[in-house]
Design a protein around this nucleic acid. Structure first.
Lengths: 215, 215
DNA sequence: AGAGTATGAATGAATG
DNA sequence: CATTCATTCATACTCT
């Protein structure tokens, strides 16, 4: 389950076997944030950057990131289809009704995506010095895309060069900003409000706090 | 949830429904052999011939063969790229491995297909007269490579009309020869040795009839 | 001690 | 040839 609350999750902390990648809560959070922010299908170069960021919290490869998005997109779409299907059940006797399905374009509407957390907005205290910090949504500060990459027109700050094939944002959440500080310098992280999701077994430090507001 | 009810995966032996082609181990072996022998991009006519051969082991269409090679090529290239990339990662921060990190070599794990069986050698009886027998000859150990020049493995006898744009042979196995006889006139197709590995569900690794030495 | 499920990984099939 | 989607296999994790 995604809940991941508490308990174990054998990361690589000192694991003997590593068969398949097991994303840590922080990593999931980040990925989820990116996804929910609209980047549902990051182009390759973005994938690499994302991977680097995630690496702060644990071993991960580009392929893992790639697969993650692919699966996320896929399952998200499928869930949607299902929901929609069951909704249309209301009018069974009818005719074609919604049969056509939304195919790729369905209008997704909000709904829980990540399982238990629900719409949320995470905000990290500021981390300042992380080797590479990501900043989602935000306003200013255009990301200094190295290499000048894509001047992305979207006012956002997310490179966003790709094509996002999904209606995106399947939930109303709005992340205000996320910064990842290096796990090693956990220095300034304080719980600010409520929820504080699972993150539980987090490596031990950091990032375990995030403020999320339901909205 | 995704269990999908049946674990089916099988073949056509008694199929309920078959939507997508599910290559059998023997078929995979053959395809793999051909590919590893240098023919990474068979021209149309070759594709047809290959299909016929594969058909001895199960239903398959030209398109399947075509797709197979296409995907194989594509993924092979990608894997290659990944590996390459991760290797070069060793000089970024300045500290090599330390980054800890990537353990795993930072690398992605794309399973390599061949790994678990260990040295093995499967061998098939040689059946000589199949309607259309394919014979791949590897450049393997046997001295055949004259001059040892770069010579691609093609010294063999494979038509080889295509262009092979790949480095080819990404795995260590070297097939020395493969003959496919029609199961229907099974006459001479008997699994002869014990090994006969799992063919079972083995998606990767292959085996069936062929003499291959892991090296 | 399993059953059930969430999800990482692999791969056939398209599409551009 | 590159990308992407759908399906499926395999496994980690949870719950009873």
């Amino acid at each position: 389950m995604e809940d991941s609350t508490s308990s174990n999750q054998s990361c690589e902390r000192n694991e003997p076997v590593r068969s398949r990648w097991n994303p840590k809560p922080e990593q999931i959070l980040i990925l989820e944030s990116i996804f929910n922010n609209g980047m549902v299908n990051p182009p390759k170069d973005e994938t690499v950057r994302i991977r680097k960021i995630l690496e702060q919290f644990g071993t991960v490869g580009d392929a893992n990131v790639f697969y993650w998005f692919q699966n996320r997109r896929s399952r998200s779409r499928r869930r949607q289809r299902q929901i929609q299907a069951s909704l249309s059940a209301v009018e069974v006797g009818g005719e074609q009704s919604a049969s056509a399905t939304s195919s790729r374009g369905g209008a997704i509407q909000f709904h829980t995506s990540t399982a238990n957390v629900g719409p949320l907005s995470i905000s990290f205290p500021m981390a300042a010095t992380a080797p590479s910090s990501y900043l989602l949504l935000g306003s200013s500060s255009s990301s200094s895309s190295p290499g000048g990459a894509v001047g992305n027109a979207n006012d956002g700050l997310f490179p966003f060069s790709g094509q996002m094939g999904l209606p995106q944002v399947e939930q109303n959440s709005s992340i205000s900003s996320i910064l990842c500080s290096s796990p090693t310098d956990n220095a300034n992280l304080h719980y600010q409000t409520g929820i504080n999701i699972a993150l539980a077994q987090v490596p031990k430090i950091i990032c375990a706090n995030i403020v999320l507001n339901y909205k």
